[in-house]
Design a protein around this nucleic acid. Sequence first.
DNA 1: TTGCATTCTGTTATATTATAACATCTACAT
DNA 2: ATGTAGATGTTATAATATAACAGAATGCAA
Lengths: 175, 175
Amino acid sequence: MSNCHNHQHCIDDALAAAQLICQQHNAKLTELRQQVLLLIWENHKPLGAYTLIDQLAEKTQRRIAPPTVYRTLEFLLELGLIHRINSLNAYIGCTQPHMHQTQSDPAQSIQGQSNQAPLSRVDRHNYFLICKECHDTQEILDASLSEKIESVSQAFKFLPQEQWLEITGLCEECR
Amino acid sequence: MSNCHNHQHCIDDALAAAQLICQQHNAKLTELRQQVLLLIWENHKPLGAYTLIDQLAEKTQRRIAPPTVYRTLEFLLELGLIHRINSLNAYIGCTQPHMHQTQSDPAQSIQGQSNQAPLSRVDRHNYFLICKECHDTQEILDASLSEKIESVSQAFKFLPQEQWLEITGLCEECR
DNA sequence: TTGCATTCTGTTATATTATAACATCTACAT
DNA sequence: ATGTAGATGTTATAATATAACAGAATGCAA
């Protein structure tokens, strides 16, 4: 939240970006997918799948079953619209979804869209600062950090595909 | 496995290091704890808690219940003898446990050992290269990488405690 | 417009990972 | 020998995730 003063603005931007990216990939941003993405952005903190189901139930008066919500999360992950925080089993909106797009691995594109711009998880970065106190979670987009990680991988002759960096600790406000 | 040609040697070293570290912290490396650590090292790949239970049952003819194995894993994690791979829900031996020791946060030391050298998870690094093909998992110990991550944290005025970097992809042999 | 194919969502059941709460055992210090 | 702390055992259950199949919605072609 710390560097997002106008929260509604974040949400609007995220939804607009999602629309655009879905168009680019000929993927449908259905009602459900939009609702899920919106909820994730409204929370603006990592959100567990079952919390999401609960909040969705409150909002819409109907309870989605786990497979449905997991499929939706999978869809949003594929498109780079959200990230998974592995250390929390939780999901958070991606601030710069277009930064995560690559054209490098058509084989992993989502079903049925193979004639469109392919999305893959290859070379996708998930870098986060996670405050243990207030749970504020800040995405890190830092080219020099990516380069450093890339060069370390190369030193090990390792071909990186997905990357997760999760740093827990205390944010500026909480320390 | 790639840079561990004599596997038995790895295991022996790990067990010896564990003995030493337990002594230093006045913690007991019990039969069970030793068995678990040994199994983790014998596998030499990230090992899930329930797989561990199964393998332990095969070896010892008795089946440990989940809470027991999770307590044992927690103990080994606290001492820095193993790491958790968050993206796999799995555990792996730490190649350089003494590199992960700090004296910075006595409050988080393990139960009843507060008059001994305290271990904390503060500033503990978990950096791994994980091959999607052969599951070989290589720990990265690279001071310049740690420094880079530290400096990025500072740029965000964030006080890092635990850090996880998990890079999945293809190792030298598999690419 | 109808029929077909594809994708999306619903449903039921179950797998996998992890922990709470409390009981018992064991080692060791006094 | 006995009390205590720590380690392990036991039972039940929580939390997270997926498999497998059914049905609905969408879009496209004839």
